[in-house]
Protein backbone atom coordinates (compact mmCIF):
# COMPACT_ATOMS: atom_id res chain seq x y z
CA UNK A 1 0.00 0.00 0.00
CA UNK A 2 2.79 2.38 0.95
CA UNK A 3 4.66 1.48 -2.18
CA UNK A 4 1.52 2.14 -4.16
CA UNK A 5 1.09 5.66 -2.74
CA UNK A 6 4.76 6.37 -3.29
CA UNK A 7 4.51 5.18 -6.87
CA UNK A 8 1.40 7.26 -7.36
CA UNK A 9 3.18 10.46 -6.35
CA UNK A 10 6.26 9.53 -8.37
CA UNK A 11 4.18 8.95 -11.46
CA UNK A 12 2.40 12.28 -10.98
CA UNK A 13 5.77 14.03 -10.86
CA UNK A 14 7.26 12.16 -13.82
CA UNK A 15 4.05 12.54 -15.81
CA UNK A 16 4.04 16.26 -15.06
CA UNK A 17 7.55 16.59 -16.46
CA UNK A 18 6.60 14.68 -19.62
CA UNK A 19 3.49 16.83 -19.95
CA UNK A 20 5.52 20.05 -19.61
CA UNK A 21 7.83 18.99 -22.44
CA UNK A 22 5.00 17.52 -24.52
CA UNK A 23 3.14 20.84 -24.47
CA UNK A 24 6.06 22.43 -26.32
CA UNK A 25 5.96 19.76 -29.02
CA UNK A 26 2.24 19.89 -29.44
CA UNK A 27 1.94 23.69 -29.59
CA UNK A 28 4.54 23.89 -32.35
CA UNK A 29 3.02 20.96 -34.19
CA UNK A 30 -0.45 22.40 -33.89
CA UNK A 31 0.64 25.63 -35.52
CA UNK A 32 3.39 24.73 -37.97
CA UNK A 33 2.83 20.97 -38.46
CA UNK A 34 6.51 20.62 -37.59
CA UNK A 35 8.00 18.07 -35.20
CA UNK A 36 10.44 20.30 -33.37
CA UNK A 37 13.19 17.76 -33.06
CA UNK A 38 15.39 20.22 -31.20
CA UNK A 39 12.89 20.50 -28.34
CA UNK A 40 14.65 17.87 -26.23
CA UNK A 41 17.89 19.76 -26.69
CA UNK A 42 16.27 23.06 -25.74
CA UNK A 43 15.31 21.25 -22.53
CA UNK A 44 18.99 20.26 -22.11
CA UNK A 45 20.20 23.84 -22.77
CA UNK A 46 17.78 25.09 -20.09
CA UNK A 47 19.47 22.94 -17.44
CA UNK A 48 22.93 24.14 -18.49
CA UNK A 49 21.81 27.78 -18.38
CA UNK A 50 20.52 27.26 -14.84
CA UNK A 51 23.71 25.48 -13.84
CA UNK A 52 25.97 28.25 -15.13
CA UNK A 53 23.73 31.09 -13.93
CA UNK A 54 24.22 29.81 -10.41
CA UNK A 55 27.82 28.57 -10.49
CA UNK A 56 29.32 31.18 -12.82
CA UNK A 57 27.15 34.28 -12.43
CA UNK A 58 26.73 33.48 -8.72
CA UNK A 59 23.01 34.29 -8.78
CA UNK A 60 20.83 33.00 -5.94
CA UNK A 61 19.14 29.78 -6.99
CA UNK A 62 15.64 31.18 -7.61
CA UNK A 63 16.98 34.07 -9.70
CA UNK A 64 19.27 31.68 -11.56
CA UNK A 65 16.33 29.47 -12.42
CA UNK A 66 14.24 32.42 -13.62
CA UNK A 67 17.19 33.70 -15.65
CA UNK A 68 17.65 30.26 -17.25
CA UNK A 69 13.95 30.05 -18.12
CA UNK A 70 14.11 33.50 -19.73
CA UNK A 71 17.27 32.72 -21.73
CA UNK A 72 15.85 29.40 -22.91
CA UNK A 73 12.76 31.25 -24.12
CA UNK A 74 15.04 33.56 -26.10
CA UNK A 75 16.87 30.52 -27.47
CA UNK A 76 13.59 29.04 -28.71
CA UNK A 77 12.70 32.39 -30.27
CA UNK A 78 16.02 32.63 -32.14
CA UNK A 79 15.91 29.01 -33.32
CA UNK A 80 12.51 29.63 -34.87
CA UNK A 81 13.66 32.87 -36.44
CA UNK A 82 16.96 31.59 -37.85
CA UNK A 83 16.25 28.00 -38.80
CA UNK A 84 12.51 27.42 -39.17
CA UNK A 85 11.12 30.70 -40.52
CA UNK A 86 13.04 30.61 -43.85
CA UNK A 87 11.62 27.14 -44.47
CA UNK A 88 8.02 27.82 -43.51
CA UNK A 89 6.75 27.39 -47.08
CA UNK A 90 9.15 24.57 -47.97
CA UNK A 91 8.05 20.90 -48.00
CA UNK A 92 7.38 19.66 -44.48
CA UNK A 93 10.18 17.09 -44.65
CA UNK A 94 12.71 19.91 -45.22
CA UNK A 95 11.72 21.62 -41.99
CA UNK A 96 11.92 18.28 -40.20
CA UNK A 97 15.46 17.73 -41.51
CA UNK A 98 16.40 21.25 -40.43
CA UNK A 99 14.99 20.53 -36.98
CA UNK A 100 17.17 17.40 -36.80
CA UNK A 101 20.14 19.53 -37.83
CA UNK A 102 19.28 22.02 -35.10
CA UNK A 103 19.12 19.23 -32.53
CA UNK A 104 22.51 17.99 -33.69
CA UNK A 105 23.86 21.53 -33.56
CA UNK A 106 22.70 22.14 -29.98
CA UNK A 107 24.19 18.83 -28.81
CA UNK A 108 27.54 19.55 -30.46
CA UNK A 109 27.42 23.10 -29.12
CA UNK A 110 26.92 21.78 -25.60
CA UNK A 111 29.82 19.33 -26.03
CA UNK A 112 32.13 22.10 -27.24
CA UNK A 113 31.11 24.90 -24.88
CA UNK A 114 30.01 23.05 -21.74
CA UNK A 115 32.13 19.90 -22.14
CA UNK A 116 31.03 16.35 -22.77
CA UNK A 117 31.55 15.09 -19.23
CA UNK A 118 28.39 14.90 -17.06
CA UNK A 119 28.28 17.60 -14.38
CA UNK A 120 26.67 17.20 -10.99
CA UNK A 121 23.65 19.53 -10.68
CA UNK A 122 23.91 20.32 -6.97
CA UNK A 123 22.98 24.00 -7.18
CA UNK A 124 19.52 23.84 -5.61
CA UNK A 125 18.71 24.35 -1.90
CA UNK A 126 19.28 21.23 0.14
CA UNK A 127 15.74 21.23 1.55
CA UNK A 128 14.47 20.11 -1.89
CA UNK A 129 16.04 16.71 -1.47
CA UNK A 130 14.51 16.21 2.00
CA UNK A 131 12.02 13.41 2.36
CA UNK A 132 8.60 13.89 3.94
CA UNK A 133 7.54 10.85 5.94
CA UNK A 134 3.81 10.33 6.40
CA UNK A 135 3.20 7.14 8.28
CA UNK A 136 5.48 4.78 6.41
CA UNK A 137 5.30 6.53 3.06
CA UNK A 138 8.39 8.46 2.05
CA UNK A 139 7.94 11.20 -0.54
CA UNK A 140 10.70 13.65 -1.53
CA UNK A 141 9.90 17.37 -1.26
CA UNK A 142 10.95 17.70 -4.89
CA UNK A 143 8.05 15.50 -5.96
CA UNK A 144 5.59 17.92 -4.36
CA UNK A 145 7.36 20.90 -5.88
CA UNK A 146 7.25 19.30 -9.31
CA UNK A 147 3.52 18.61 -9.03
CA UNK A 148 2.74 22.14 -7.78
CA UNK A 149 4.88 23.86 -10.44
CA UNK A 150 3.32 21.75 -13.17
CA UNK A 151 -0.22 22.59 -12.06
CA UNK A 152 0.58 26.31 -11.82
CA UNK A 153 2.13 26.36 -15.29
CA UNK A 154 -0.86 24.59 -16.79
CA UNK A 155 -3.18 27.14 -15.17
CA UNK A 156 -1.05 29.87 -16.72
CA UNK A 157 -1.24 28.15 -20.10
CA UNK A 158 -5.02 27.86 -19.82
CA UNK A 159 -5.22 31.56 -19.02
CA UNK A 160 -2.95 32.42 -21.96
CA UNK A 161 -4.86 30.33 -24.45
CA UNK A 162 -8.43 31.08 -23.44
CA UNK A 163 -8.39 34.50 -21.80
CA UNK A 164 -6.02 36.55 -23.94
CA UNK A 165 -6.05 37.81 -27.52
CA UNK A 166 -2.71 36.10 -28.17
CA UNK A 167 -4.21 32.80 -27.13
CA UNK A 168 -7.15 33.36 -29.42
CA UNK A 169 -4.74 34.06 -32.28
CA UNK A 170 -2.77 30.90 -31.46
CA UNK A 171 -5.87 28.78 -31.58
CA UNK A 172 -6.95 30.44 -34.81
CA UNK A 173 -3.55 29.95 -36.47
CA UNK A 174 -3.59 26.26 -35.70
CA UNK A 175 -6.73 26.01 -37.82
CA UNK A 176 -5.80 28.21 -40.75
CA UNK A 177 -2.76 30.49 -41.07
CA UNK A 178 -3.72 32.63 -44.13
CA UNK A 179 -7.22 33.40 -42.86
CA UNK A 180 -5.91 34.35 -39.43
CA UNK A 181 -3.44 36.77 -40.95
CA UNK A 182 -6.29 38.29 -42.97
CA UNK A 183 -8.12 38.84 -39.70
CA UNK A 184 -5.29 41.13 -38.64
CA UNK A 185 -3.30 38.83 -36.35
CA UNK A 186 0.47 39.12 -36.64
CA UNK A 187 1.30 35.51 -37.50
CA UNK A 188 5.05 35.85 -37.02
CA UNK A 189 4.67 37.30 -33.54
CA UNK A 190 2.21 34.65 -32.48
CA UNK A 191 4.52 31.87 -33.70
CA UNK A 192 7.42 33.49 -31.84
CA UNK A 193 5.36 33.61 -28.65
CA UNK A 194 4.48 29.94 -29.11
CA UNK A 195 8.15 29.04 -29.33
CA UNK A 196 9.01 31.21 -26.32
CA UNK A 197 6.29 29.63 -24.17
CA UNK A 198 7.16 26.10 -25.31
CA UNK A 199 10.88 26.58 -24.69
CA UNK A 200 10.36 28.16 -21.26
CA UNK A 201 8.19 25.22 -20.26
CA UNK A 202 10.95 22.90 -21.46
CA UNK A 203 13.46 24.85 -19.34
CA UNK A 204 11.26 24.46 -16.24
CA UNK A 205 10.95 20.74 -16.95
CA UNK A 206 14.71 20.55 -17.50
CA UNK A 207 15.52 22.20 -14.19
CA UNK A 208 13.11 19.95 -12.31
CA UNK A 209 14.53 16.94 -14.16
CA UNK A 210 18.12 17.90 -13.35
CA UNK A 211 17.21 18.22 -9.66
CA UNK A 212 15.59 14.80 -9.72
CA UNK A 213 18.52 13.04 -11.41
CA UNK A 214 21.16 15.46 -10.20
CA UNK A 215 23.28 15.53 -13.32
CA UNK A 216 23.54 17.49 -16.57
CA UNK A 217 25.14 16.28 -19.82
CA UNK A 218 24.83 17.23 -23.50
CA UNK A 219 22.79 14.20 -24.60
CA UNK A 220 20.38 14.25 -21.65
CA UNK A 221 17.59 15.77 -23.75
CA UNK A 222 17.22 12.99 -26.26
CA UNK A 223 15.36 10.33 -24.28
CA UNK A 224 13.01 12.64 -22.30
CA UNK A 225 12.40 14.57 -25.51
CA UNK A 226 11.47 11.48 -27.47
CA UNK A 227 9.28 10.19 -24.64
CA UNK A 228 7.50 13.52 -24.29
CA UNK A 229 6.89 13.34 -28.00
CA UNK A 230 5.38 9.89 -27.41
CA UNK A 231 3.17 11.50 -24.77
CA UNK A 232 2.08 14.19 -27.21
CA UNK A 233 1.19 11.55 -29.80
CA UNK A 234 -0.71 9.46 -27.24
CA UNK A 235 -2.84 12.46 -26.40
CA UNK A 236 -3.24 13.47 -30.03
CA UNK A 237 -0.53 15.75 -31.35
CA UNK A 238 -1.72 19.32 -31.80
CA UNK A 239 -4.03 19.12 -28.81
CA UNK A 240 -2.83 20.72 -25.57
CA UNK A 241 -5.24 18.86 -23.31
CA UNK A 242 -4.06 15.73 -25.12
CA UNK A 243 -0.40 16.46 -24.36
CA UNK A 244 -1.17 16.91 -20.66
CA UNK A 245 -3.26 13.74 -20.44
CA UNK A 246 -0.70 11.83 -22.54
CA UNK A 247 2.18 12.98 -20.34
CA UNK A 248 0.49 11.88 -17.14
CA UNK A 249 -0.62 8.61 -18.71
CA UNK A 250 2.88 7.79 -19.91
CA UNK A 251 4.44 8.69 -16.55
CA UNK A 252 1.86 6.59 -14.74
CA UNK A 253 2.29 3.53 -16.98
CA UNK A 254 6.06 3.74 -16.82
CA UNK A 255 6.30 3.99 -13.02
CA UNK A 256 3.75 1.23 -12.58
CA UNK A 257 5.60 -1.03 -15.02
CA UNK A 258 8.84 -0.61 -13.11
CA UNK A 259 7.00 -0.82 -9.77
CA UNK A 260 5.26 -4.10 -10.49
CA UNK A 261 7.91 -5.76 -12.69
CA UNK A 262 11.27 -4.56 -11.30
CA UNK A 263 13.23 -6.95 -13.52
CA UNK A 264 11.86 -5.19 -16.61
CA UNK A 265 13.38 -1.85 -15.53
CA UNK A 266 15.91 -1.98 -18.36
CA UNK A 267 13.08 -2.05 -20.87
CA UNK A 268 11.10 0.97 -19.66
CA UNK A 269 12.15 3.03 -22.68
CA UNK A 270 11.23 0.18 -25.02
CA UNK A 271 7.80 0.19 -23.41
CA UNK A 272 7.26 3.87 -24.26
CA UNK A 273 8.38 3.40 -27.87
CA UNK A 274 6.26 0.28 -28.36
CA UNK A 275 3.29 2.27 -27.05
CA UNK A 276 4.10 4.95 -29.61
CA UNK A 277 4.17 2.50 -32.49
CA UNK A 278 0.91 0.85 -31.39
CA UNK A 279 -0.84 4.22 -31.05
CA UNK A 280 0.44 5.33 -34.46
CA UNK A 281 -0.76 2.08 -35.98
CA UNK A 282 -4.26 1.95 -34.59
CA UNK A 283 -5.20 5.47 -33.62
CA UNK A 284 -2.74 7.91 -35.20
CA UNK A 285 -4.83 10.87 -34.11
CA UNK A 286 -4.39 9.97 -30.44
CA UNK A 287 -6.98 10.23 -27.70
CA UNK A 288 -8.07 13.78 -28.52
CA UNK A 289 -8.73 13.74 -32.20
CA UNK A 290 -7.90 17.08 -33.81
CA UNK A 291 -8.07 16.51 -37.53
CA UNK A 292 -7.82 13.51 -39.77
CA UNK A 293 -9.19 14.52 -43.15
CA UNK A 294 -6.82 14.14 -46.06
CA UNK A 295 -7.56 16.23 -49.10
CA UNK A 296 -6.44 14.96 -52.49
Amino acid sequence: MNALIQNFFNSLALGGLYALIAVGYTMVYGILRLINFAHGDIFMMGTYFAFYAITLLLLPWWLGFLFAIFITGLLGYSIEKIAYRPLRNAPRISSLITAIGMSFFLESFAVVVFGGIPKSFNVYPKMFSDVIIIGKTRIPVLTFITIIVTVLLFLFLWWLLYKTKTGLAMRAISVDIPTTSLMGANVNNVISITFIVGSSFAAVAGILWAMKYPQVQPYMGFTPGLKAFVAAVIGGIGSIQGAIVGGFLLGFLEIMLVGFFPNLAGYRDVFAYVTLVIILMFRPTGIFKIYSEQKV
Partner: peptide, 17 residues
Amino acid sequence: PGMSMLLLSVIFIFVMI
Protein backbone atom coordinates in the same frame (compact mmCIF):
# COMPACT_ATOMS: atom_id res chain seq x y z
CA PRO B 1 36.76 18.29 -28.43
CA GLY B 2 33.61 18.04 -30.49
CA MET B 3 34.49 20.96 -32.76
CA SER B 4 34.25 18.91 -35.97
CA MET B 5 30.65 17.91 -35.29
CA LEU B 6 29.70 21.48 -34.41
CA LEU B 7 31.02 22.82 -37.72
CA LEU B 8 29.44 19.96 -39.67
CA SER B 9 26.07 20.65 -38.08
CA VAL B 10 26.36 24.33 -39.03
CA ILE B 11 27.16 23.33 -42.63
CA PHE B 12 24.18 20.99 -42.54
CA ILE B 13 21.74 23.69 -41.41
CA PHE B 14 23.14 26.14 -43.99
CA VAL B 15 22.66 23.61 -46.77
CA MET B 16 19.08 23.04 -45.66
CA ILE B 17 18.21 26.75 -45.53
